[in-house]
Every structure is written in C-alpha cells, then in structure tokens.
Design a protein around this nucleic acid. Sequence first.
DNA 1: GCAGTCCAAG
Length: 753
Amino acid sequence: MVRMGLVRLDEYTIPFVLKVCADVPAVDKGREVHGVVFKLGFDGDVFVGNTLLSLYAGGSIEESRRVFEEMGERDIVSWNSMIAAFSYNGCFGDALVWFGKLRLSNGVKPNSVTVVSVLPVCAELEDGKTVRGIHGYVVKAGFGSQLNICNALVDVYGKCGKIEAAKLAFNEMGQKNVVSWNAVMSGIARNGLAMDALDMFRLMVVAGEKPDSFTLSTLIPVLVELEFFDMGKEVHGYGIRKGLVYDAFVGNSLIDAYAKSGRLKEASNMFHNMNTRSVVTWNAMIANFTQNGLELDAIRLLSEMQIRGEFPNSVTFTNVLPACSRIGCIRQGKEIHAMSFRKGFVFDIFVSNALIDMHAKCGCLTLARNVFESSIRDEISYNTLIVGYSETEHCLKSLGLFSEMGCAGLDHDTVSFVGVLSACTNLTAIKPGKEIHGQLVRKLLHSHLFVANSLLALYTKCGQLDIAKKVFDQVPNKDEASWNAMILGYGMQGELETAINMFDAMRDQGVEYDSVSYIAVLSACSHGGLVERGTKYFSDMLFRGIQPTHMHYACMVDLLGRAGLMEKTVELIKGMPIEPDANVWGAMLGACRVHGNTDLGRWAAEHLFELKPDHSGYYILLSNMYSEKGEWGEANKIRELMKSRRVKKQNQAPPLSLLGFPSGWSRAEKRRKFFAKIEEKTPAKEMEKSSLQGKSKGEEADIKQLRKSLAFKATPMPSFYKEPLLKVDLKKVPTTHPISQIEIHKTSTALIN
DNA sequence: GCAGTCCAAG
C-alpha cells in the first residue's frame, strides 16, 4: 500500500491514491484523502469526484450521495457510479429512480454501461415495464447490435416473466452465442415451462451450439421437473466427457436430480466426489436425505456442515425442519427455531412456514400459532395451521383461520378444504361443512379426489349417508379411502348389508383392499353378528399379507365376543402377536357385559385399569356387571378401588367399543393427548424418549449420539415466543371420535417441500 | 487516469 506520507497529494496524485484505497479496500484512508481533497478545493473536479464515488461504492450510500451532490459537474461515469452503488447495496428502487433522473437531466445521456447496470435491477424488481422502456432506448441509441446487451435483455425479460418478449428479443438477435441460448432457456424454465425449455435445448443443439456448464445446470432441473431421469443420466455422461461435472453448479444440480429420483447412492457419490462444496451442495444433500426417509442423516449433516465451516442458511433450515418433526427431534427443531430467530431467517416465509409445520406436527400448536402471528403469511402458512388445528381439540380454530384466510385475500386451495373439512368432521359440524361443500361446487373442486374423500368423511360421520352416496358417485377415480369411508359409514349407520356389498363391489371395481377396508368390513360384520363372514374376511386379510392392527383385533374380539364365543375370543387375545391395547380389552369387556361374564370381564378390566388408569368408565362398567349379578360386595369393592385410586367419575360418554363399535382414539387424537401431556411436563425429554420407541439398538445409539454432538447449542426460546398471542380462549370444543378419517390425513402431509 | 460485463444450482 502506498504510504501517504511519502506521496505529495495534488490533483494528479489524488485519483491514483483514491483508486488504491478503493481497491485494497482502505475506506478510512480514503476518507482522509477526501478531507485533503476538500481542503485543497478539488472537490468540484469531475474526475476526482468520480474516483471518490468509486471509493464509497462498496459501502456508504450516504457518502456517495453527498459526494455526488457536491460535485460541480457530473458526467455519465458519475451517474453510472451512483446507480451501481445503489444496486450494489440492494437499493434497487433508488437505482431505478436515479436512472429516471438521469434520463430527465440535460446534457448527459445514458450509455451502454448504464443499460447493463440497470437491467439486473429491473430483474430484481421484476419490473418488465421498465425493461420494455430500456429496450426501446437501446434500439434508439443504437446499442441494439451489442451481444452482451441483447443477452441481458433476453435474460431480464425472462426473469420478469415476460417469456414472449424474451423469445422475441432472442429471435431478433442477428448473432447469438451460448449465453443467448442459456438465457432464453433459463427464462423459459424459470417460468415453469419445462417442456418448452427442453425443446429450446434441442434447437440449441441443432443450431450447433455447444452446451456449457451453464446449459447443464439449467437443463438438469428441467429434466427433474419432467421426471426424465434417464435423460438426466445421459446429461451426466455428457458432463463427464466434457469435464463439466467439476463445475459446482452442475454438481449441485446432479445431486438434486439423483435425490429427487430416489437414487440415494448416486447422490452421495456426487457429493463425496465434489471438490468444492458450497452451502447449496450441503443443502441439496440434506434435502436428499429428508426426501428419502433418512431424517437422522439430514440432521447429522446439519451439524457436520458447521463443523466443516459452512454456515447454514434459510434453505438449510427449510430442508431440515421436516426431518425434525418426522422423527420427533423436537429439541433440534426448537434449536433451529432459536437459531433462525437469531439470524433473522424467521423473516423468510419458507422458514416460517416450515417452523409452523414443524411445531404443528409435533403438537405444539401454541408455538406454531406464535410463529404464524409474527410472520408474513401466505396460503401455505394458513393451510399448515388449518391442517394442524384440525387434528387437535381446537378444531374450531381451523374454521376461524379458514375464513380469516379468505378475508386476507388469499385463495383456498384443496389443502385448505381438506383441512377445514377434517375439522368439521371432528366437530360433527354439518352446517359449516355444507357451506364449504357449496364453495367447493362453485370452485369446481368438489370431485377432486382428496377433497371428495374429506366430504365423504364428513357426511358419513354425521350420518348423512344419502349425501355421501351422491358425492361418492361423482368422484371419477375413487381410491381405497373413498370406498373405506362409505363402508365405514354404512357400517356405523347399521346398513350392514350395504356395507358388505360395497366391500365386495370395491374389489370388483379394481380397487385393492387396504388395512382400513378390513377394519370397516369387520366392524360391519360385528354389528350384524355375522361371525362366519367376519372370520372369513379376517383370514382373507391374513392371507393377503396385511398385518392386523389393534383395531382389527378389537373388531374380531367384538365380533366373537358378542356372539358369545368366549373361548375363541380368549384364544384370539392370547394368540395376538402384538400386545393388546385398550381397544381390544374394551371390546372384550363390552362382550363380557353383554353375556354377564364377570370372570373374564374382570380379566379385561384389570388390563384396562392399567392402560387407562384415569378412565372411570371401566370401573363403573365392571362394578355394574357385579351388581347386575347381585354380587354387591364385589361391586362395592370396585367402587372403593376407584375411590382409592382417586379416579373421578367423569361426565363422559362410554368408549365407543362398548357401544359395539371398535373404538380407540384416532391417531391424531392419541398424538394430541400425548403431546398435551408432555408439553405440560418435560417437553423435550419425553419427546426424545418417545422418538426412540420402535427403533433398533443401533439407531437408538445413533440418535443419542447425534443429540449430544449437534454443533449448535440450545438457546432458550425468546420470551416473545412463549407468550400466547391469542388472548381470547375459544369455547372448548367437545372431542369426538374421528375414526372415519383415518385415511384422510394422508392428504395433508406434503405441505412444505 | 474514473463506471458496467450477459446465462446456472439447493
């Protein structure tokens, strides 16, 4: 660096020194020189002023502006420097305003440098109108034959969504180079026209232009979009032959392509063979793991990238959060939340939506709501929360959000409808449900498969089989869930013959039975006391290799038990390969009650006392069984037992299994209860424990190790997030039994991707 | 002697 002490500062040396200060950069030294300039009275000189502008271009807009204003005269370089400074500092609006001022000023005219500086600004602001204006100016001013300007025009038109204009500008170019082709292709691709982009690529090859690394990194995502994975492999081969795969962009797109086609190993190979890994590389790899069910590896990679000195960004968090909720790493999820908060990523709508989803999926609806309330919101934010609430006892909030969404000017889509209908189903709220059905018909969405399935769930749950049937008949491509809903509906309504006929019709129509279909038909059989048929269906199911769940066993116990086949029932329970749950024992107890079998009833009840210690109904039922037989002593004993265990008699309906229906809370209900309980006590600990259930020893050790080794430290949630923002407590909603929507939830999972 | 350099990935 130049020692200023040795340099005589005059109007000849000052620009030279200033240039050095700008290049190093040593802005503070430059400021000293600026002082000298001022003192010597050179600040009116255009050339000196321009050098000062270039000194401040990288940082202080205010200083640049002051220099500009204090300049005695300004030339095009001064104006261009100002526009560049605004653009560099992200002040795109100001850059355009100054471009406007320049056009209005007398004497100075924009040149080609101005045009290439302003065009990227238009792209940032997606301001197609201004591009058109600039295009006109380019032609008028005679820059129309400059390749780089035409390329920039094509590019910016594409980025502003003006595809036709981009194509036109491209076609009008007298000569084209590879950049022109790449620009027009990427413009088409980024506007979602993957097929057209591929056609453009073919034309490019026909025209004899050699694809370069830019071409490949545009083309590969296009092939992914079209699911042309084989072609992707060909492109990979071409990249290898031409040495283009060493390009970071190409490598990253290839990782993504292999990940999205489920080729985990190829993606990993790409990752390991890359010599420069950027945050994008890590993100692609994390997405690879999350998408292919290796959630643990996704979370592990988040810490590994930090160990290797790469900082996660908002995309990293968006990709890793779904992994956290899926394997119950709520603590990691919360750490990411805190980290996003510190880094300001919560202001990124993708991150805030992923956070809402993560909290909602983990059952922490209050946290989800807090993020929602303090972020900018789009359709996905609303949908995530609507679906989240619909699986809890606060279903009413789904309805509130659904209408709020409309008031906020956002369009309801199929996910919103599925969510709100699921809430209506849980609430047995037929009236709002019908209104929503009306909206669906107006929007022509009523025969959309997932939506129609939600409608079926609603109408069958509310006992309106006739409407359900009409909806059902209108669905063109019914799936298992559609049939299951109807079978369950008829079964619940007691129209057993119809239920069983539908079950048979289902397969005749070419729709395969799934686990739920058998629950539906078995419950119909048990209603009607059709022991033989039920048993046949059960063995049929085993024969087809469908693993019976607790629900299936509960149905069978109900079926056999009600028919008085106690020995067979006991045999079935004892032979179960899985531990019987409250549904099974509840069905057993119900059967014993019907047949006055206190011995077996006691056996079942004792298991139930263990499994559901707070449930008064079972005690009362057993006690009543004894009193019906006149065994008052035993009856009293049970009442005493209940008292000593401090089980309060609640004003609650008996479990549905005792009413002859295979009961048990739905998955959502179970999850809600589970989370409500642990949220009160030790959220993170219990959550972690539960996420280890059903994992093998190795996996368990892995998860534990991972939790220990995560590179970032847990930070307490800002108190801001702890305060519930919703002060109004909505009326408590009675919980209901959403059995008929077991299949519906599968539509609501892929919200954030 | 001062300003701008086009097209790509998660």
